[in-house]
C-alpha cells in the first residue's frame, strides 16, 4: 500500500491574539488521489487546518508530512508545485482579465525571472474552459459575480496543477448549476491524479463527492472516515449542537433538522 499523501501527527495550533487553542493534537491521514471533505461548525478550525497544510502557518506541536517528507523540507517553489489553495474569497484591486488572472497559477512552474510562454497560455485557457468561463476570458475579473469569482479561483488552481488542492468553502457562493459544475471539476481533477481537500458547511455535498469525511468539533476533530461512518445523525447532532437526522432519498443523502 502506498504511503498517504498527507499525514498529520499530533498537530496543535493556537492563534496568538486570543490565546485560544484552535486545534489540539490533531492526527489524520489523507490518501493519494482522493477527495476529503472537512466539515464542522464555524470557528472550529477548518480554514486553520488548510493553512497548516499549505505551510502558511506552522503547527506549534506535532508534524505534518507531505508525500512522506515534512513540510519545511520543501522549497517555496516546490511547495507551489505540490499544494494549491482555492480561497473562499480574494481581494482583487486591479482589473486583470480572467485569462491574466488564471495565468498567475503558472507561477510556481516558472523560474524566478521567467515570464509565461505559449504553453502556459494554453494551460490557462484550458483551465478556464474546464470551469466554463472560456468565452469571457478577456473580461475584467473585477466585473464578475461572487460565484464566477469562485470559479476563476478554481481555474487558477487547475492551471497551477498541484498534487494537492486545498479548497476553502469552494461552493459557498455558487448557484445549484455551478455547484454541480464544480463537483464535476473536482471529479476531473481527481481522475487526473490530484488529492483534494475541501471545507464545507453542506454535508450533502460532502456525501455526494468525498471519499472520506473529517468532521471537526470544538477543539479537536471528532470523527474521520468513510462517508457512511462519519455522516450519521448522532455525530452531526453532536458537532452542530442541534437535532439532525440523516435520511436517504433516491440514493442521495439528505439532512433534516429541527430548530
Amino acid at each position: 500500500m502506498s504511503s498517504p499523501m498527507i499525514e498529520l501527527k499530533g498537530v496543535g495550533f493556537t492563534y496568538a491574539a486570543d490565546n485560544n487553542s484552535v486545534l489540539q493534537t490533531l492526527s489524520m491521514q489523507v490518501d493519494r488521489n482522493s477527495v476529503t471533505a472537512i466539515l464542522g461548525p464555524n470557528g472550529v478550525g477548518k480554514t486553520t487546518l488548510l493553512h497548516l497544510l499549505l505551510g502558511w502557518i506552522k503547527p506549534e506541536t506535532g508534524t505534518i508530512l507531505l508525500g512522506g517528507k515534512s513540510l519545511p523540507s520543501y522549497t517555496r517553489r516546490e511547495m507551489g508545485m505540490l499544494v494549491g489553495l482555492v480561497p473562499q474569497y480574494e481581494h482583487i484591486s486591479f482589473e486583470y482579465s480572467l485569462l491574466e488572472y488564471v495565468l498567475l497559477g503558472r507561477t510556481p512552474h516558472l523560474k524566478p525571472l521567467q515570464t509565461p510562454g505559449k504553453e502556459d497560455y494554453e494551460i490557462a485557457m484550458h483551465a478556464l474552459d474546464i470551469v466554463g468561463l472560456k468565452d469571457i476570458a478577456e473580461k475584467p475579473v473585477t466585473h464578475l459575480s461572487g460565484g464566477e469569482k469562485q470559479l476563476v479561483l478554481t481555474a487558477r488552481s487547475v492551471a497551477q496543477n498541484p498534487r494537492v488542492i486545498l479548497m476553502d468553502e469552494p461552493m459557498s457562493n455558487l448557484d445549484l448549476a455551478n455547484k454541480v459544475k464544480l463537483l464535476s471539476v473536482v471529479n476531473e481533477l481527481k481522475e487526473k491524479g490530484a488529492t483534494i481537500l475541501f471545507t464545507s458547511h453542506e454535508p450533502e455535498i460532502a456525501a455526494s463527492i468525498a471519499d472520506k469525511v473529517v468532521l471537526m468539533g470544538e477543539g479537536n476533530y471528532l470523527k474521520s472516515g468513510a462517508v457512511d461512518e462519519v455522516l450519521t445523525s448522532a455525530s452531526l447532532s453532536r458537532v452542530y449542537g442541534i437535532p439532525v437526522k440523516v435520511a436517504e432519498f433516491e440514493g442521495s443523502r439528505i439532512l433534516l433538522w429541527r430548530k
Binding site: L54, R77, M79, L85, E90, L104, T107, P108, Q160
Partner: peptide, 12 residues
Amino acid sequence: SLDDETAFSLGL
C-alpha cells in the same frame, strides 16, 4: 498584488 496567502500558495 494578490492576498498574501495566495501569493504564498503560488510558491512565493
